[in-house]
Design a protein around this nucleic acid. Structure first.
Lengths: 228, 228
DNA sequence: GCCACCTTGATTGTATACAATCGTGCCCGA
DNA sequence: TCGGGCACGATTGTATACAATCAAGGTGGC
């Protein structure tokens, strides 16, 4: 149970602490609304208060924690309406990213996507769902990067983090067959058709309906599949 | 030419430095690609290196600067493709925010919007364009907050900052008559119709066409109006 | 003359120490 | 008994000092 950030991580320094705290928030180690005292964090992650403070500043900008002057930071609480908005925003941005990726993707990125699909096939055959989830994150991360837009990439990545955050505490995983759709995405990217790429990803995300119409407040994305 | 952050600012501490540096980046004081040495910044803004570092962490998360380990931070450079993406992303998110605002806005927020429109009328009559620009920012800020979604509010606010950043260096202002449309937005919000709100803001932003189709690469938002 | 290596300088990353601020509990008085 | 005020503790915000790392320039050898 030692969460201290390893010295070996490629991102030396406070960046590692940022990732560690963010992961712990997503995984529910730090519950929403919990107070995050700087000294406690510095003890827990084995660094001084300065990197902790910088990490908290990053997490604040990303929306994972809220800061009030001289009152400390607390883990942000995502209510149902926020969760619904996340789904909606993502259903707008990821198709846009896919459309960009269809035009701008590099051969190397396409190769990485194909590689990830192949790895997922192996993992699926071996029944390693844990591996599948990790590959899923990587797939969408590379897909976002293929958009060629730094802004889009960062936004989509952060949205995915928050989606994971929301779903981690809400439902068990059901991951398997989304990879058939992943393979389809790669094929569309290779064809270079932006419209088709956007449509495929829209369907993949699971919000095929019109954009701006607010969904039924009752159906708070509980039927969404975290593994997409 | 003293940019040091005043002690009087409501947001005590490093938050003020963050705002100051961001404003200077947006205003072009720190040119894209410029190296931002921490000590130079701390001298310029009259604080120590620690608040500067925290501010840079925030600005990094917001995408205004890029950090490379032990290599310092540089002001991010937005190429034309990025600028185009910003326009596209905003044309997706602001209508969504308006749709949410039409349903969730509080009476207080609606009052503030009306008040801003009135103030803009006065400023317009007096010919104070500088005041108009500031009111314009406030209007869209309150409009975003009225969406009731913290995520949406932050995203839209950051996008607006970046739009301002892009346009500051590119074209002169032409601000006047967008306020007629602002008044229209307020009316739609009061009516409570989400679809109509989304349509009005979509037209207001100036990208009425379909969402995912990439725009003509030649027409890089140069004909966009920064004052909307 | 050119390349590899090392040294040096500057800059970032981190830790420790100090100051400012706020919440809290206690005490006193009505 | 209850309310206001005050002092205390804890925590955040900031400044200074030190360690780690990298880039550049010089020097020696080939």
């Amino acid at each position: 149970m030692d969460s201290r950030v390893g010295k070996d991580g490629r991102d030396g320094g406070a960046g590692g602490v940022t990732r560690a705290i963010r992961d712990d928030i997503i995984r529910g180690v730090h519950a929403p609304g919990a107070r995050l005292a700087e000294e406690a964090l510095s003890a827990r992650y084995g660094v001084s208060r300065v990197p902790v403070r910088e990490a908290l500043r990053t997490l604040e900008a990303e929306g994972f924690v809220a800061r009030r002057p001289y009152a400390g930071v607390v883990v942000a609480a995502l209510d149902d309406a926020e969760a619904e908005d996340l789904v909606e925003i993502r259903s707008l941005l990821e198709p846009l990213g896919a459309a960009r990726a269809a035009v701008r993707h590099t051969p190397e990125q396409l190769g990485r996507l194909k590689e990830l699909v192949a790895l997922a096939d192996d993992a699926l055959a071996a029944g390693r769902l844990e591996e599948l989830a990790r590959l899923n994150s990587r797939f969408h991360e590379v897909l976002a990067q293929a958009s060629g837009s730094r802004t889009l990439t960062e936004l989509i990545t952060q949205l995915r983090w928050k989606m994971e955050w929301v779903y981690t505490a809400k439902l068990p995983r059901r991951a398997q067959d989304s990879w058939r759709e992943h393979r389809e995405i790669v094929a569309v990217l290779e064809s270079g058709d932006p419209d088709k790429a956007a449509r495929v990803v829209t369907r993949h995300i699971g919000k095929g309906r019109g954009a701006h119409r607010p969904a039924d407040p009752q159906a708070i994305a509980v039927d969404q599949d975290p593994e997409d």
